[in-house]
Amino acid sequence: MLETTQKFIVDLEENVLQPYGSENPETHQSLKTEDDESSQPRQNSKRKLVLSSRGCLSNIMIIPYRLEASKYNDKTIFATRYCGVLHTSNYRYDHDNSKNNTYHSKFQQTCFSDGPDRVPDTDQPVNENEFIRGIFQTTLKEFDLIYSGELSGIVSYEQIDDMQNLENINELQFISTKLLWNSGHSKIWKNPKCLNWWATLYLANISHLCVGLKDRDGFIRTPVQRKALKDLPKDQFWKPQICVRFLLTMLKLIEETMASVNCPYTVYEFVYDSFAKCIKLKKHIGKTEYSFLSEEYIDRCRKQTSMSY
């Protein structure tokens, strides 16, 4: 299971990731399946780097429990392989700017303040275009995973002045917030969304989850419920180890399928079809509307590759 989460501040020169290929086990964190003998990568194995988003990885993890035929259960993963690095994305989705979704941001604003001695500033309008994101690193068998994801807040009884100190950041207790409609059911932790919550927060090593129940008018009139993430899988029909193993299986499938690809524009589209109960593949060769790597990133990869020879 995920033991530690390493966060990187990408705007500092000293924190730019070094050329890939280090076999030093101290540079890796571990995402272990239940039958792993060790959390350390094998010294003689060839490491494989995957760059992704947390949402993309969590969508893969929940597929084993999304077997009912439904468009909602269908999942699409786009992949590009370039300079020996596998890039995966689920970027083709519609951002939800509905009234219901804005409740989540307002709830988050109400829960967090800028310091332990301050009260939350709820007078400011919520900016839906601003997100606090982290970059995470972990390992899964032969794969090194680096992915981005949104963060909610931290629990701290002291003011944190230096947010550039990576050692301090990785010792903080991170917490997340979610909202549900108040349907009158008391078993909030049996909601079907718990699986998606767990997968998303597990990848970021979030310690606790706070859930509010909103009425039809958007107000929360009952106490917010809090639960440790490690306790969320208890008494559920889904099993964390199955989710992690399926992620490993899917990464192996994508890597093996694209082993001969080395193009920044070619995209392989892997689609989980819940109606057909299978993974379908569509290839978009060359530069198309599906190409998702930026020209700036491609140019940096080319320069880094030429410097290594």
Rank of each mutant, 00 (worst) to 15 (best):
V155H: 11
I160D: 04
F78A: 07
A79I: 02
T102A: 11
K99C: 04
F143V: 01
V119F: 09
P120A: 10
R81C: 04
V126D: 01
D96A: 06
E158S: 15
K141N: 14
Q108P: 00
N97M: 04
S105E: 03
Y93W: 09
Y103H: 11
R133E: 07
S89F: 01
I146Q: 07
N101V: 06
S98C: 09
T102W: 01
R118S: 07
V126M: 02
I175S: 02
E142C: 08
E171N: 15
Q173P: 03
D96M: 10
L166H: 01
I77D: 00
E128I: 10
K106D: 01
Y157N: 14
D114Y: 08
H95N: 12
D162Y: 05
F78L: 15
F136D: 02
T76Y: 01
T76C: 09
V85L: 10
L86I: 05
E128S: 12
H87N: 12
H104S: 14
C111E: 07
L86P: 03
H87S: 08
T138E: 02
E158V: 15
L172G: 06
I132N: 08
N90M: 11
T76K: 14
D121V: 14
I132G: 03
D114P: 01
S156K: 08
Q137C: 08
Q159F: 10
I146E: 02
I169A: 09
N170Q: 14
N129T: 12
